[in-house]
């Protein structure tokens, strides 16, 4: 049971690396962006894992509940920001991919390199 307390961190590490692996190895630009968003999501998991307190509830103060235990609100605030950053990066990346497709006719990295060296 003690080890299960670290399971979240391992999943974070594994998912992070799966995302990174996709970004590095794949040629397809959209696949790269999908990998990038997995990579970013993994970090959200790291932060949210920190915030949990045994027996805690979401940090919303209710009247009449005496001596409540709350999970940590600060990492949640940070991750709200990070989620928005993630979608912004993705949108911008996709806009660039669309432009690449229009001017090169392909979204595969090796095709693009080949087409540039033709010039």
């Amino acid at each position: 049971m003690e080890l299960l307390g670290y399971y979240n961190y391992w999943v974070f590490a594994v998912v992070l690396c799966l995302g990174l692996y996709t970004v590095i190895t794949r040629n397809n630009l959209i696949k790269k962006l999908l990998g990038l968003s997995i990579f970013q999501s993994a970090v959200f998991l790291l932060y949210i894992t920190m915030d949990k307190v045994d027996g805690g509830t979401a940090p919303i103060i209710q009247k009449g509940v005496s001596d409540p235990i709350f999970s940590n609100p600060l990492p949640q605030v940070l991750i709200l920001t990070a989620i928005v950053v993630g979608v912004s990066t993705t949108a911008l990346g996709l806009a660039i991919v669309v432009r690449i497709k229009e001017s090169y006719g392909s979204i595969e990295e090796d095709d693009i390199l080949a087409r540039d060296s033709e010039l």
């Binding site: 992070l16 970013q40 990346g93 660039i96 690449i100």
Partner: peptide, 20 residues
């Protein structure tokens, strides 16, 4: 465009590493 795309990918990885 591909140059900026590469910058975007690497820049995001860099920023995410910083965040970790």
């Amino acid at each position: 465009l591909p140059a900026v795309f590469k910058y975007l990918i690497l820049g995001t990885i860099g920023a995410t590493f910083y965040l970790i």
